[in-house]
């Protein structure tokens, strides 16, 4: 029900910032997510960062599947 994609935070000033995935960049609204800094990956839904992507969890899940 909700499309969202992981994008990298390029810059952030207050609630406004820019995110990027591949060649694509656009502005993003950060009013729903605290403690984000440039370089983090966030999940973007309808122009809003709604959650950080947890790199350790991502790696862990892939490792788990590889090792089953």
């Amino acid at each position: 029900m909700c499309l969202a994609i992981p994008m990298k935070v390029i810059s952030i000033h207050g609630n406004e910032g820019t995110v990027k995935a591949g060649n694509l960049s656009r502005r993003a609204n950060f009013s729903l997510l605290k403690g984000v800094k440039p370089g983090d990956y966030v999940l973007l839904h309808a122009g809003f960062a709604i959650e950080k992507v947890d790199a350790i969890e991502a790696k862990g899940m892939l490792k788990l599947i590889r090792e089953v």
Binding site: S31, L32, L43, D54, M61
Partner: peptide, 18 residues
């Protein structure tokens, strides 16, 4: 939770407050 890189048991409280 399979989608652990995004979802936590308690969710995003900032968004919920808004």
């Amino acid at each position: 939770i399979e989608y652990s890189r995004i979802t936590h048991p308690s969710g995003n409280s900032t968004a919920r407050r808004v």
